[in-house]
């Protein structure tokens, strides 16, 4: 093979690999990506969204909304102080899940109820999921003193 031919082989294989990678990435972006919304955005966008689209919602756990049907069937509501979304969840709640605290739930919306399959709470008293912190700041209910270390 000539030097030119070798170079062509190299370029062709590089393009093939990169092409495959781009294809995989685009394919994976279709369902590997999850949007984050606030309860208000969720209410506004419900009609426009594909059914069974996975998403994350974040906000504060409504005071007094936590109820446990039995051991691990849990229901609570998330609010951004404008709109409230009811959430159901089966499983164990994280250590730092509290009423009145920030939380992020991931799952699908079905018949007006958000069915979560994972619930994330703050990692520690300084950490709040960034999306929640941002949306709380936007709504002016951010309590700087409580979160700042």
């Amino acid at each position: 093979m000539t030097r030119k031919g070798r170079r062509l082989t190299l370029i062709a294989s590089a393009l093939a690999v990169i092409g495959v990678a781009i294809g995989l990435a685009l394919f994976a972006f279709r369902d590997g990506v999850v949007f984050f919304v606030t309860p208000s955005e969720l209410a506004a966008k419900t009609a426009a969204m594909a059914p069974n689209a996975r998403m994350r919602i974040g906000g504060l756990v409504v005071q007094g909304s936590l109820s446990k049907a039995d051991d691990r069937h849990i229901a609570f509501a998330i609010t951004d102080n404008q709109t409230q979304v009811n959430v159901t969840y089966t499983g164990l709640l994280p250590d730092l899940f509290r009423e009145g605290q920030g939380v992020v739930a991931e799952g699908v919306l079905a018949n007006g109820v958000f069915r979560a399959d994972s619930v994330l709470a703050k990692h520690d008293e300084n950490y709040m999921p960034r999306e929640v912190a941002d949306s709380l700041k936007k709504q002016g209910v951010w309590n700087e003193g409580a979160v700042k270390k």
Binding site: V20, L24, F29, G32, V34, F35, F36
Partner: peptide, 18 residues
């Protein structure tokens, strides 16, 4: 301003086959 999270499914689908 849109917020998304790219999680394990994305990486498993792209990184794995490569």
């Amino acid at each position: 301003g849109e917020k998304i999270s790219v999680g394990a499914p994305f990486f498993n689908l792209t990184f794995g086959p490569l």
